[in-house]
Amino acid sequence: MDQTIPAHGYRPDLVVEDFTVPSDTPGISLHLRNKRASAQKTFSAERSILMVHGATYSSASLFDVPLGGRSFMDHLATQGFDVFALDARGYGGSTRPAEMDAPAQDSAPLVRTEVAVRDLASAVDYVLAHRGIPRLNLVAMSWGGSVAGAYTAGNNGKVARLALVAPLWLLNTPAPIDSGGALGGYRKVAVLDFRERWLAAAPEAARASLIPEGWFERWAEASLASDPLGNAERPRVMRAVNGPIQDIRDYWGAGKAYYDPNDIRVPVLLVHAEWDRDVPMATMQDLFSSLKRAPYKRWVEIGEGTHMVLLEKNRMQAFDAISQFLAERDP
């Protein structure tokens, strides 16, 4: 059974609901947040979106922190989209595997990409049934791009368009997210210390203005709040599963694709920023060239941005590129 929980403290022109829906695994539930304009009464495939987060931070952290008075979900909802955002198991409001309550070294890396693809499948099927629509648009970031790409490759009929922000693909350089060494089931992320690595991707002269004042602190607090157990530790941390990092070692970092882009047969948008160290430009070019069966494809490159461009000063360029792509008619 799903549970609908009204959310409070958001813009009065938007309806916000949080859903708890079943996964394909007994005892594992998935969190979905929905935002839409309060005036919206009808729903269509073309105006419906499901968002997928990356390897470390939840959907609420990446897509729904109101920086500068507006989150990415707010932006899409005010553009007339019915927007859902998924937390895969182990993230945000979704069930964390029981192994995350034990020491990390007691389990193998949790929530591999294959598991997240299954969670995405459960979420897509829920939204399609809930809204009575045949398909929807997918918007995903980083590792979420791997999840959404793999899902779309096997389920083109359920996807209208695919928009990917810095999607993980074949890497010719080490992945910054992987610090090396043995991987346990999960890792503890000191979110407040992430600012230095984030800014290090930008030229030194650009770092002071990359993240507007107060934005990092607000985002970090929201990220830490997503994991009450980790947040109770001192120093404060957030637990993140290690399955995505294991898959970087086994696939992307080893020159092996997890899925075949030729199996994607829907329109695709790639959004990338010039200072992205996690997904270098050559990686993006390789993926773009590999999408040979998409009806059409587009690559938008944003200047003065890093892998976290959705939370930086130039984020509106990414927001607008995605909303325009999803709103336009097929050529």
Rank of each mutant, 00 (worst) to 15 (best):
N172F: 13
V189Q: 09
I322V: 05
A257R: 11
S290D: 12
F72W: 14
D330F: 13
Y151G: 05
M73R: 03
L224M: 02
R293Q: 13
W169K: 02
R131Q: 06
F63C: 02
E233H: 12
P235F: 06
S226T: 04
S29N: 13
A206G: 09
S289V: 13
D286T: 15
S226F: 11
T25S: 07
A182F: 04
I264F: 07
A104N: 06
P22A: 05
G230Y: 10
R265M: 09
A121W: 05
P235K: 09
D125K: 09
S94Y: 07
I49N: 04
A88V: 12
A37C: 10
Y151I: 04
E204A: 15
I177C: 02
E114K: 14
R197S: 15
V15L: 14
F43N: 10
G253D: 09
P228Y: 03
Q324H: 10
E99R: 00
Y296C: 01
F81Y: 02
V309D: 07
E328F: 09
A254I: 04
F72Q: 08
D119I: 03
T42W: 00
P261H: 11
W252R: 13
K41R: 15
K297V: 03
S226A: 15
K297I: 03
K292R: 14
D276P: 02
W169I: 05
I49E: 01
R234C: 14
G154R: 12
Y259W: 15
Q324M: 08
Q3G: 10
F81T: 08
T20D: 08
A254G: 10
V237H: 11
G54F: 03
M308G: 07
P22F: 02
L229Y: 11
E213Q: 15
I302A: 00
P261C: 13
V268H: 02
D193C: 07
A254S: 14
D260T: 00
A200H: 08
H53F: 08
H130V: 01
R135L: 06
R207F: 10
D330G: 12
M316V: 15
I302P: 09
R195Y: 14
G68M: 04
R112Q: 04
L14P: 03
Q105T: 12
R329D: 06
P66L: 01
P267K: 07
Y57R: 10
E301Q: 13
A37T: 11
N155R: 12
I133V: 02
P203A: 08
G181F: 00
L224S: 05
N155Q: 10
F81W: 02
S44M: 04
A148I: 11
L171W: 01
V159N: 05
R239Y: 07
I302R: 01
M281P: 12
A202Y: 12
P203T: 11
P174I: 12
R197T: 13
R70I: 10
M281I: 13
E221C: 08
E233Y: 11
E99C: 07
P6T: 04
A37Y: 03
R187A: 02
A294Q: 07
L269E: 00
F63L: 09
A190Y: 15
P6S: 05
